[in-house]
Design a binder for these strands. Structure first.
Length: 589
RNA sequence: GCCUUCCUAGCUCAGUGGUAGAGCAACGGUUUUGUAAACCGUCGACCCGGGUCCGAUUCCCAGGGAAGGCUCCA
């Protein structure tokens, strides 16, 4: 067994290992079925995954979902035959002979030879033999429930320089019930999709005229602004100073920063008649460096924390755009912190504390990842990099934070710590990031005067907490399924007058709430109460205030919460107190 | 960018080689309502451009846009 796979399996529970073997077997059955149905098809590879399995193959004819029925039928046949799965180690030379017609397998065999590992094969009865490290079930009959899910194109080794193969995704379980449950979960997750909810709740939209660039509708912008407001208050408390700088910058700025060499092809460019090219800002750091440099700085100024939320544009490849989760226009809750070398550690701790504070408010799961030097795309010398990576490793370990390492994922100017979150479909997204940068300050010739009166170059920490506001809101929508906490929700209260007789009273309440800074709407339509409630429920309003003749006469309100429950208090003053307390408690504690 | 699929009214969806039908929404009227959909009526659409055809929303080609996927180890 290969080292990588071995490591992976040892991390799993026994239950997970069993499922892994099951799915690996199902994948093997899929491949054999494909091979039986389409003899000219060449298998490339096919692993089990946490959700199922997939199989990559090279085939000139197109397989589509319309073919699934036929393929599943063949898979069923192999399962019913209950063929034994027999593992056998073979010599390199022999393996090369067996798979001589399959260049993908031969490449794998070379790789195995290079690593000095054993070549393992599996036989499925007399039907088929395949290069495979296992583990597998003992026989095909043990696969009790499976389903093919989708087809896709996938590059060999994920590299677009290689040939594009076809991929079939599927999943398998030990029982039909588990399979049905899994499919149900997927359907449920789709209901939380931020793209769907964004439209239903009128939060944002996209338009053909600017793909990947969101239009923020009034309700979505309310959420956006609340997040920025909270960010601003918390950062002022922690000594950050906010700046704003040009969106268009001459090419020369990005030549200085190094982005011209490393990033220009992913930037939008604005051409001028006679002043050359301007780059549309894709990152904030170069402008922050300019601000640092506009006057003499002293060691007393450090750490100097410059924050901003300027709009950024990046020319992301069209196929990668994904609702709010990958866009071409966005804003970050960005900051650049200039520190002396001995301040790195304590400033990182400060940043981690902000992360903890921010994320705990939303009760979202997240994980850390350290990205190290990319050998093909980095600036500066290896020694400085090694030092920076060592520093980050040390800080993470001492903070007791669990993290994974992704080699080569650093920014071109320095290693970084990313914070990841998952969307409703379980896909991971990079949210916050904290990057250490020894390079750019040198290139910008940034300096400060230290205690002894000599000039020193500061170190820059680039950091975002939400990440991009756009992506963060996308994740939030899915996390809350549109049921935002009251402090964030676009409409906190909706007043539902029972009849037209109650409009005046309803409006007087509306004005009081609005004057008190509560986001309130009134449903003046000539509709039944049932319809008004249904409507407000679907808009996911936090509180509904129902006012009819009874309330009007007694000068009270009747409060219905989003979960269908009622509040006992029936005075407006009490209600205002309750809602304000709810908001404050969430943000302060 | 590449692969697959998709694009019909503001939204959700029908449907067809002879230019489309519904529900919700919107608008007008009736009703004046007690905790998730009152009733009647009106308005409103085949993503864009070519081609094939007597005729294209439907078939073909090109474009635009969207969704899922594109290194989880044989």
């Amino acid at each position: 067994m290969s080292k990588v796979l071995d490591e992976k399996l040892t991390k799993m529970t026994l239950e997970e290992q069993k499922l892994w073997a099951l799915r690996h077997t199902a994948e093997h059955i899929l491949h054999t079925s494909l091979q039986n149905l389409y003899p000219k098809l060449k298998k490339a590879m096919g692993p089990a995954t946490p959700d199922g399995f997939y199989n990559d193959f090279d085939f000139d004819e197109k397989i589509t979902e319309a073919d699934f029925e036929k393929i599943e039928k063949e898979m069923k046949r192999l399962i019913n035959l209950d063929l034994p799965m027999i593992q056998e180690d073979v010599k390199i030379e022999e393996a090369k002979k067996i798979f001589k017609n399959n260049p993908y397998k031969l490449e794998w065999i070379d790789e195995i030879e290079k690593r000095g590992e054993k070549v393992s094969t599996y036989k499925m009865g007399d039907e088929e033999i395949d290069l495979c490290s296992g583990p597998h079930l003992n026989s095909t009959g043990e696969v009790k429930a499976f389903k093919l899910l989708s087809v896709a194109g996938a590059y060999w080794h994920g590299d677009e320089k290689n040939k594009m193969l076809q991929r079939v995704y599927g999943t398998a379980f030990y029982s039909q019930k588990e399979l049905a449950n899994y499919l149900y979960q997927i359907e449920e997750a789709k209901k939380r999709d931020h793209k769907k909810l964004g439209q239903e709740l009128e939060l944002f939209m996209f338009h053909n005229t600017s793909p990947g660039m969101p239009y923020w509708l009034p309700k979505g912008l309310t959420i956006y602004n609340e997040l920025v407001k909270f960010w601003r208050i918390e950062h002022i408390k922690r000594g950050y100073q906010e700046i704003m700088s040009p969106i268009l910058n001459k090419k020369e700025l990005y030549i200085t920063s190094g982005h011209y060499d490393h990033y220009w092809s992913e930037m939008f460019v604005a051409k001028t008649e006679d002043e050359g090219e301007y780059g549309v800002k894709a990152m904030n750091c170069p402008n922050a460096h300019i601000v640092f440099d506009h006057k003499n700085r002293s060691y007393r100024d450090l750490p100097l924390r410059l924050s901003d939320t300027d709009p950024l544009h990046r020319y992301e490849r069209s196929g990668t755009l994904n609702g709010l989760l990958r866009v071409r226009e966005f804003r970050q809750d960005d900051a650049h912190i200039y520190v002396s070398e001995d301040q790195i550690e304590s400033e990182y701790k400060n940043v981690f504390e902000i992360v903890k504070k921010f994320y705990s408010i939303f009760d979202i799961n997240y994980s850390f990842r350290l990205g190290t030097r990319n050998p093909e795309n980095f600036m500066g010398d290896v020694k400085t990099w090694d030092k920076a990576e060592k520093t980050l490793n040390k800080i993470l370990k001492e903070s007791g934070i669990e993290y994974e390492i992704l080699d080569g994922d650093g920014a071109f100017y320095g290693p970084k710590i990313d914070i990841l979150m998952k969307d409703s479909l379980g896909r991971s997204w990079q949210m916050g990031t904290i990057q250490l940068d020894f390079q750019q300050p040198r290139r910008f010739k940034l300096q400060y005067i230290d205690k002894g009166g000599s000039l020193k170059t500061p170190i820059a920490i680039h950091r975002v907490i939400y990440g991009s506001l756009e992506r963060f809101i996308g994740i939030l929508i899915e996390h809350f399924a549109g049921n935002f906490p009251t402090w964030l929700t676009p409409v906190q209260v909706k007043i539902l007058p029972l009849t037209e007789r109650n409009l005046n009273y309803a409006n007087s309440i509306f004005k009081k709430l609005r004057d008190d800074g509560i986001r309130v709407e009134i449903d003046e339509r000539n509709e039944t109460l049932g319809e008004k409630i249904r409507n407000a429920q679907m808009e996911k309003i936090s509180y509904m205030l129902i006012v009819g003749d009874k309330e009007e006469k007694e000068k009270t309100i009747s409060v219905r919460c989003r979960d269908g429950k009622s509040l006992e208090n029936d005075s407006l003053e009490d209600f205002i107190r309750i809602i304000k307390k709810e908001i404050e408690e969430k943000l302060i504690n």
